[in-house]
Amino acid sequence: MRKSSLMVLATVATLFIVSWIFKGIALEDIYESNYLQGFLLTFSAFLTLSIMSFLYKDNPFYKFSEHLFVGVSAAYAMVVGFWTTIVGNLVPRLSESLSNFFQIPYQEGTYNFFYYLPVIFGLMLLMRLSKKHGWMSRIPLAFIIGTTAGLNFIGYLRSDFTNQIAATFIPLLGAAGEWKGIGDFFSNLSLSAGGQLVMMLSNWVIFLGVFCGLIYFFFSREHTGLFGKASRVGIWILMITFGASFGYTVMGRISLLVGRITFLFKDWLGIIS
């Protein structure tokens, strides 16, 4: 290890201990186990700063936090999954004695037999660890992919899709039945946001936007000539959307950072209250 890294390490360790002690003293009135709480808070702050240090460059503190986080979170998912899915969802439907063993209420019902199948599927999946019977793991995978393909096949068509098409049925010549000829249109021209002209313009933009957008997504036709021009307009409109969405998200993201900074300065350092 280089001298400079050692110095950084020593500084961080010292700061950590100082923070731990100060935090411990500060929390004396609030917690019984004030030094433990002080340690935990300091550790949280250390992890927060380690992760932020990534912005400067990859470094041992980031690596430490990252690896710790990965290990702990993988275990967390497994433990919670075991308790909620296996014990909470599966066991009470398999057999009464098994759920008595796990001390959870057994769910009456005649269909519990069917819950042996996912167990078999699950065991087949584990077979992939064996070289000889590895092929069996494809059966549960086929089950999952088949089921979800069928589900998605319908899922998207049923709600959003048909609604989005039907929502595009908008009048392009003023509101329905209000078109009284070109002369009338010009004599009542107004630039107000709720006015007929703006409404009409918006409807045209929506219609042409959807139209050109769909043209852009045509794969089996050359995008040349008029078709190509429509496709160009399509991609412009897509870019406007992406820009608007980008601009809109910026603020939300900043507030997340404010939350972390509040933790550091308020909960840990106690500078702001």
Partner: peptide, 25 residues
């Protein structure tokens, strides 16, 4: 901008994605 072109393009994308999902499944 948010209510008109944004809406139009999102609609085009959603319809496209819908077809893509249906075709892939």
């Amino acid at each position: 901008l948010i209510n008109v072109p944004n809406l139009a393009a999102k609609r085009a994308i959603i319809i496209g994605i819908g077809l893509g999902i249906v075709a892939t499944s």
